[in-house]
Write a protein that binds this DNA or RNA. Structure first.
Lengths: 207, 207
DNA sequence: ACGCCACCATGACCATGGTCATAATTGACT
DNA sequence: AGTCAATTATGACCATGGTCATGGTGGCGT
C-alpha cells in the first residue's frame, strides 16, 4: 500500500469527489447562464458528463443541487468577510461589512440568488444540511462579535450572544425577503433596509 | 333586470366564486388529510369537480393553490387575534397574543404549515399576491400597536412604527424557520424562542 | 493474478405538474 | 328567438423531475 499513489490509496473516493466537482461546476454554469428553473436536471447531468440518475446520488433533488452549488460560494464569502471584519468598529459597521459581502455576491447573480433564497427555508437534503451547518457556523461567528462588544462594554452583559446572533440573522433574511417581493432593489434592501433594521435591534443591546 | 336574481344580475361571476370555493375546499381537505406533496393536482381537480386545466385558472401553480388555501385561515386568525389584543398589556404580551394564535393554527396541521412556510417566501402567483397584501395589513396593524405604545411613552418617539413592525415580523418568521429545521418543537419555537427574540428587540424600543 | 463483493453508475421508465387548441356558456344587442 | 363576441371550461398532451432494476468497477483477500 501507498508508495506510488501519493495522494491516496483510495481511487474510488477520488473519482467521487471529481464527479461531485464536475456536477457543481456544470450546475453553476447552467444556473447562472440559463437560469435555475429553466435548466433541466438532464442538462446538468449531460454537462457534467454523468447519467441522469447519477446526479441524484449527489443531490437528493434539484433543490438540493442548488444548495450544493450555493454552499461553496456562501462559505467563501463568509470566511473572507469574517477575516476582514473591522475589529475596532462599532457592531453595526462590523455587521454591515459582513452582509455587504453577501449582498454583493447575491448581486452578481440576482435571479439565481432569488431562486436560492426561495428554496432556502427548510432545506432538508444532504446539501441542505451542509447549508444549515454553515448557518450555524455563521451564527456562532456573529455571536463572537457580540461577545467582543460585551467585553468592551458596548453590549449589555445580560444579552445572550447567540440569541442576539439569531435575531440579527432573522433581520438579514427579512431584508432579503423584502427584496424578493420586488418592493426594493438589492442595494436598498441592504443599505437603507437592513442597516436600519439592525440599528433598531442593536439599540436593544445597550447596557 | 334584477327582481328575481336577488343577489346579483351576474351569473358568470357567481359561478366563478362557487368554483373557487369548491377548489379551496377540496384542496384543504386533501392537503390536510393526505399531505401537500402527496396530493396531486388532478386529485384536487377531481374532488372539486372541475377539469385539470380549470384548476390553473384559479391558481397559477400548485404553490399558488397552497396560498389560496392558506390565505383564508391566516386572515381569519389575524382578524380574530387583533380584535382580542389586550390593549393595556405591555407590547410583548400583545405580540405574544397575536403570534400564539398563529402558532396554534399552525399546530393544528403541522405538516401542511411546514409546506406553506417553505413556499411562502417569494410567492408570486395571484394568490401569493393576496398573501403579500395580507402581510402588509399585518405589518400595518402591528405598527399601530407600536404607535399606541409610543403615545403611552413606553416606546421611544424616534422608533419608526413600520420599521419596528417589520423587525417583529422577521423575528416571527425566524422562529418558524427554527422550528422547520427540526431543532425545536412548535411550542418551544413560540415560547422560549420567539418570546425571547421579541423581548430582545423590544429592549431597543425603549425611550 | 484471480475472483469476489460492495458500492457506484446507468438510462429506460414513470408519475405529475402544467399547457393549449378546441369546445361550451353566457349575456348583450337586435 | 337568433346571432355574436367574449369569457371560461375541458382534457388530451407534453416536458421534466425523480426512480430503480440492471450492469459495471474498484478494492481486497487469497
Amino acid at each position: 500500500m501507498s508508495m506510488v499513489s501519493e495522494r491516496k490509496g483510495n481511487r474510488r473516493a477520488q473519482q467521487k469527489l471529481d464527479k461531485r466537482e464536475r456536477i457543481r461546476q456544470a450546475a453553476w454554469e447552467l444556473f447562472t447562464t440559463v437560469g435555475y428553473e429553466e435548466t433541466t436536471t438532464k442538462q446538468v447531468a449531460a454537462a457534467a458528463d454523468v447519467a441522469t440518475g447519477t446526479l441524484f446520488l449527489y443531490a437528493r433533488d434539484k433543490r438540493d443541487l442548488l444548495c450544493l452549488v450555493m454552499h461553496d460560494r456562501l462559505g467563501g464569502v463568509v470566511d473572507a468577510r469574517f477575516q476582514t471584519v473591522p475589529r475596532q468598529a462599532p457592531l453595526l459597521d462590523q455587521l454591515m461589512h459582513l452582509f455587504r459581502g453577501l449582498f454583493e455576491m447575491y448581486g452578481e447573480h440576482p435571479a439565481l440568488s432569488a431562486a436560492f433564497i426561495r428554496h432556502y427555508p427548510g432545506a432538508d437534503g444532504p446539501n441542505g444540511q451542509q447549508l444549515n451547518a454553515l448557518t450555524s457556523k455563521f451564527l456562532y461567528l456573529i455571536s463572537q462579535l457580540v461577545l467582543d462588544q460585551q467585553a468592551r462594554g458596548e453590549v449589555g452583559a445580560d444579552v445572550e450572544p447567540l440569541l442576539a446572533a439569531a435575531n440579527i440573522f432573522s433581520l438579514y433574511f427579512g431584508a432579503l425577503a423584502s427584496w424578493m417581493t420586488g418592493f426594493m432593489s438589492l442595494e436598498d434592501a441592504l443599505d437603507p433596509g437592513l442597516r436600519r433594521a439592525l440599528a433598531l435591534q442593536i439599540r436593544g443591546f445597550r447596557p
